[in-house]
Structures are given as structure tokens and as C-alpha cells.
Simulated scan of single mutants.
Amino acid sequence: MPSEGFEQFVRVRYTELLHTAYLLTGSVAAAEDLVQSCLLRIMPRFERVADPMPYLRRAMVNQRTSWWRALRRELLSAQPPERSGPDPALEFTERSALVAELARLPERMRAVLVLRYWEDLSEAETAAALGCSVGTVKSQASRGLARLRGLLEAGDTQRSAR
């Protein structure tokens, strides 16, 4: 039986975890599966985990990497999870393009960008979550942003040529 603290944590943080998982997986269904499997893993020892968010971020990145290695390929959903209010059409289009291009990045690079810029973690927190050095986070973030910019610009050029 889950503790009251665990249930409260899930009520408060589930949407945030789901958004992070969506950015890591690119699919609503896979994001839900990822969050659920990681929550099930932490549930028995939730009271002993000092800060569950970093633990869960790390668990989601590790689980996603394991799934990716097993499947090697996954379909990307065009619709992100719903937020608190409706998004304007332009913002939706831009976000969809960003998520689609994010899915084309290597797993580690994607994880760095999601944790660093979506979750707004510091370089040190991102490094701790991924089990790597701060220098690796810096280089992966720099390369990832440059690659993402290039992919988005190429996509804009292709769309404007149509």
C-alpha cells in the first residue's frame, strides 16, 4: 500500500514528470509507461529517498535508455501532453517541430537538453542525474543546441520552399 507521502507526491508532481518523460520518449503512451514504471520502482522505498525528483529523473533517463537499446526505434507522437490551458496554434506548431527534431538527437544529448533546459537543472544537477561530469553536460548541451538549431533551420527552409 503506498504511503500518504507518496500519494501526495504523485498528485503534485505527476504532470511535471509526464512532461519530462514525454520529452525523453517523444510519445504520450511511452511517457505514461515510463513515469508509471519509475514510480512503481520508487514506491516501496519512497520514505527513504531524501529528494525523489532527482531520483526519478535519473530513473526515467536510465529506463528510457534501456528501452531504446531494446527497441532501437520508436514512433514519435505529434501531440504533446495537455497543459493547463490551450496553446495558440503557432506555439503548438513550433513545439511540435522542436519535439520532432529533439527525437532525432542521440539519447544522451536529448537527456542533457531535457534535464538542463526543460527541467531547468543546473549543470551540476544534470551531471548528477546522468552520472557524468559537468564537462560532459556542457559539451553535450552545446553540441545538442547547435544540432537542434541546424535541424530546426533546415526544417524551416523546407517548409518555406513548399
Rank of each mutant, 00 (worst) to 15 (best):
M1R: 02
P2E: 01
E4K: 07
G5M: 05
F6G: 01
F6C: 00
F6S: 02
E7A: 03
Q8C: 03
F9K: 03
V10H: 01
V12N: 05
R13G: 04
R13V: 01
L17Y: 01
H19V: 03
H19A: 03
T20F: 04
L23N: 04
L23H: 07
L23C: 05
A29H: 08
A29V: 13
A29R: 13
A31D: 01
A31N: 00
D33L: 06
V35R: 01
Q36T: 11
S37F: 04
S37A: 15
L39H: 01
L40K: 07
R41Y: 09
R45S: 15
R45N: 10
R45V: 14
E47T: 10
A50W: 02
A50E: 13
A50M: 04
D51Q: 14
D51A: 14
D51W: 04
P54S: 11
M60Q: 05
M60F: 03
V61F: 03
R64H: 10
T65P: 00
W67Y: 14
W68V: 08
R73G: 13
E74I: 05
S77L: 04
S77V: 04
A78P: 11
A78R: 12
P80M: 10
P81G: 05
P81V: 09
E82S: 14
S84T: 11
G85M: 06
G85N: 08
G85R: 11
F92V: 12
T93F: 10
R95Y: 11
A97F: 05
V99M: 09
E101N: 14
A103Y: 11
A103W: 08
R104C: 11
E107F: 09
E107G: 08
R110W: 10
R110G: 10
A111Q: 08
L113T: 09
L113Y: 06
E119I: 07
D120M: 11
D120A: 12
S122K: 06
E123M: 08
E123S: 08
E123L: 09
E125Y: 01
E125T: 02
E125A: 14
A128K: 00
G131P: 00
C132W: 04
K138M: 07
K138G: 00
R143T: 06
R143I: 03
L145Y: 03
A146Y: 08
R149A: 14
L151W: 03
L152C: 09
G155E: 15
Q158R: 15
A161S: 14
